[in-house]
Amino acid sequence: METAATRTTGPVSGTDGGTAVTFRGVTRSYGAVRAVQGLDLDIAAGETVALLGRNGAGKSTTLSMLLGLLPPSTGTVRLFGGTPESAVRAGRVGAMLQDGKAVPRVTVRELITFVAATYPAPMDVDEALELAGLAEFAGRRVDRLSGGQAQRVRFAVALAGNPELLVLDEPTAALDVDARRTFWRAMRGYARRGNTLVFSTHYLEEADDHADRIVVIDGGRVVADGSGEELKRRTGGTLVSFDLRGAASAPLPALPGVSAVEIRGDRALLRTTDSDATVVALAGLDLVHGLQVTPASLEDTFLALTSGATTGAATAASATGAAAASAATASAKETV
């Protein structure tokens, strides 16, 4: 997991502008199953956006409609003000699909050279290979690469045309920790040039670490939309804990910002939406002993946002270590 310090690049200004992606009232059904039900979404040019959701939440369907691979059942999808097809034809879009397999009997360089040549203003092939971490495999046949290397090839395919909008469907699924870090470093560099980046993931940390904005999708709808910090705040995302030293716990639930109170032995754990106000109030009560203020775990936030998260969502259990955070996760599980 990368630290906050590595994403000081901040949000990229989309000054040149306009809107890269627009969804209006989009639904998509497969027979009787509604995979996407009523999606409204605007993504500005230059933004880096994560679509976060559990498996089956509708992320891949959403991205397929964004790329024009799948027509919406109702509603409209626009890219740069036109249809997805026209944006794709104009070479403004590159994508890494989730289910793509290696194309047999071509070398990495042949494949990337071909894809680049289909675009009007492609990236230099060597640059694309370098960015994707494939420089040393350029002469290898694509079907003779390992899973992680093949995934980099798909990434290079997405990059080769130097597109303004890069769409990545669960881009790091087959990558190990090192490859993941290299991948995101390349991605940040690409976004910094003013390009728009949309990726789907079910890793909370990944969304929080690498996106300016997280769109949480559940049951085919947007259930939350904002920066990682905003999402955490919205769900009462800070934990304040301190030693009671025998003081009464009765006044605690009434303190400003506090949404939940848990007492463990002599230690009180408060969930708060406004930790500053809570701490000031605690100081007024002379309760600041062994004070700790920790952000609620992302799992906690995610569970609070997605209804019916019975299984799967919390399995990653990011081993935060902080007793307070894990306790909060446990209590959140109970309430869901």
Partner: peptide, 18 residues
């Protein structure tokens, strides 16, 4: 048919090649 199964035809659909 092989390329269809591999997803390569799908990938080609999101290149500017019609």
């Amino acid at each position: 048919a092989e390329d269809k199964q591999l997803g390569w035809l799908r990938q080609l659909r999101i290149t500017p090649m019609g």
